[in-house]
Design a protein around this nucleic acid. Structure first.
Lengths: 145, 145
DNA sequence: CTTGCTTCTACAGCTACTGTAGATGTTATA
DNA sequence: TATAACATCTACAGTAGCTGTAGAAGCAAG
């Protein structure tokens, strides 16, 4: 069993964040020691690391809850799990595509820098461009309410 | 010239968000019409779309400010621009790598779903695993303060 | 046993928005 | 041209997701 400080270091997050996740139900309520300290197992560390990575990738806590439910309830009917997985996969692919465009542009800039000055930075163009945007709600065919 | 509502629809964001970005200096102070309405040009829309995409990809406003400075000041010495671009490129690559792992796992789950039930979901394992984590601050060799 | 670190609860503060109220501008329809 | 419907304005409060701080209590080392 690990203390909250150990868990926080393992997942590179703040102690308060762990308590916050417990409070909102993303992490299970931790059992306590004699002296009232929270105690964690390796599975809790894994779960927390998953949450932190997903957060760093820009997923909302609700989306993460969604993903966690896949492993929390491995016997749920496939229709539900499949829907969740597909929904998240779409999102992941959109993100990879946009990051790819940004990466290309950043590499081009770094490469160009060898010449002395960056006179035609297209960093905005790259990520504002519809052609590079895979998100449904940004495509000209659809308008949001 | 476009109204704020038009710009908000073009970038799929809220009108208030645009005013907020102006307030914190991410967007230039918009010129006003006779009737005191903000007026925007295409360049403003592009800039806003860049910001929104970057935000969706999980970049903090400070990092976005960083990236925007690359195109705001195209004649700045290459040393500075290169540092910014490299810093952001590293981050982008880390994100792509982690999203790639998540994508693989989601695809595996969707594929497996054809069999009926998901009995061995490894979605947590994938994103909590150190082997898949490219971030310096998560590698066992280093500990954060 | 006391110095120093960790953890506890509780709550205030921060970032990045998002919503609401009430006033005013603008436009479509009668 | 009047008036209803909608967009925009300012100002400020509220939300999500943390992050910091205060003050008390637990615990380990010297």
């Amino acid at each position: 069993m690990y203390t909250i400080g150990h868990v926080a270091r393992a997942a590179s997050c703040k102690v308060q964040t762990i308590r916050y996740y417990e409070q909102i139900g993303l992490l299970p309520v931790a059992p306590r020691s004699e002296g009232n300290r929270r105690l964690y197992a390796q599975a809790d560390i894994d779960r927390l690391m998953f949450i932190r990575h997903a957060r760093e990738l820009g997923f909302a806590l609700d989306a993460i809850r969604d993903l966690l439910s896949l492993s929390d309830d491995p016997n749920q009917p496939c229709v539900a799990a499949d829907a969740i997985a597909r929904r998240q996969l779409d999102e992941v692919e959109r993100r990879i595509a946009r990051l790819g465009s940004l990466k290309t542009e950043l590499m081009r800039m770094i490469d160009q820098c060898r010449g002395g000055r960056i006179s035609d930075c297209r960093v905005i163009e790259v990520l504002s461009n519809h052609a590079h945007c895979m998100a449904d709600d940004h495509r000209p065919t659809e308008a949001k309410p």
